[in-house]
């Protein structure tokens, strides 16, 4: 059963990864990508990392991919132009692909030949006995790797603040700032008045 599930998820993941690249429509690409994320989560559940699987779905599918979809949906896509651009950029793309492939081959080759020492699996990374993997991850993140974890958080915070500062550089808002408290404090008496105009006469504003 597990083997069947593994091959199902793995095959679907590779297929949807391929479709992500080959799909003509960018929105379809994003949807295939989401399917790939799902299958990755399925694979993680098979190896017993259910916490990571859930986080993958929450973070990547629930937030990141939605933003992708958001942006891609807004694009006004001209397919003919895209295909022209494809031919123009093809040499560069092929070059990058070759470099990545070479790196992979070199890296795996070196590891296979024993030139790289990555450590052997000795069970130290396995979940602690009697603990769920949420607790194991928590103990590691907030125990041994507390400092690195906090630094990563601060780096992300800085990046976020940077993005906000960049987009909000011109502080003068041309449309004027909304003051919600002022809006809420506004009563009907301030904005309207009751008048009983004489027949045939208008209202003086």
């Amino acid at each position: 059963m597990t083997v069947f599930a593994f091959y199902l998820f793995a095959a679907l993941m590779i297929a949807s990864g391929a479709f992500t690249i080959f799909a003509r429509n960018p929105v379809h690409s994003v949807l295939w990508l989401i399917l790939a994320f799902f299958n990755a989560a399925g694979l993680m559940i098979i190896v017993g990392a259910e916490f990571l699987a859930m986080l993958l779905v929450v973070v990547y599918v629930g937030a990141v991919a939605v933003l992708f979809l958001f942006v891609v949906m807004m694009l006004n896509i001209d397919f003919a132009e895209m295909r022209a651009g494809f031919m123009k950029n093809a040499p560069l793309g092929v070059a990058i692909a070759v470099i990545l492939l070479a790196e992979l081959v070199l890296g795996i080759g070196a590891y296979r030949a024993g030139a790289l020492e990555l450590g052997t699996p000795d069970g130290t990374a396995a979940t602690l006995v009697g603990e769920s993997n949420i607790e194991s991850i928590g103990a590691l993140l907030y125990g041994r790797y507390l400092f690195l974890f906090e630094v990563a958080g601060i780096i992300l915070l800085v990046a976020m603040i940077g993005a906000i500062v960049l987009t909000h550089r011109g502080t003068t808002n041309p449309r004027g700032q909304q003051d919600i408290a002022k809006q809420n404090a506004r009563r009907p008496e301030d904005a309207t008045r009751n008048v009983r105009p004489e027949i045939g006469q208008g209202i003086e504003l």
Binding site: M54, V57, V58, V61, G62, A63
Partner: peptide, 10 residues
């Protein structure tokens, strides 16, 4: 609970 959060984000 995480599962529910994941599913509801879908």
């Amino acid at each position: 609970l995480l599962y529910i959060l994941a599913i509801s984000s879908l």
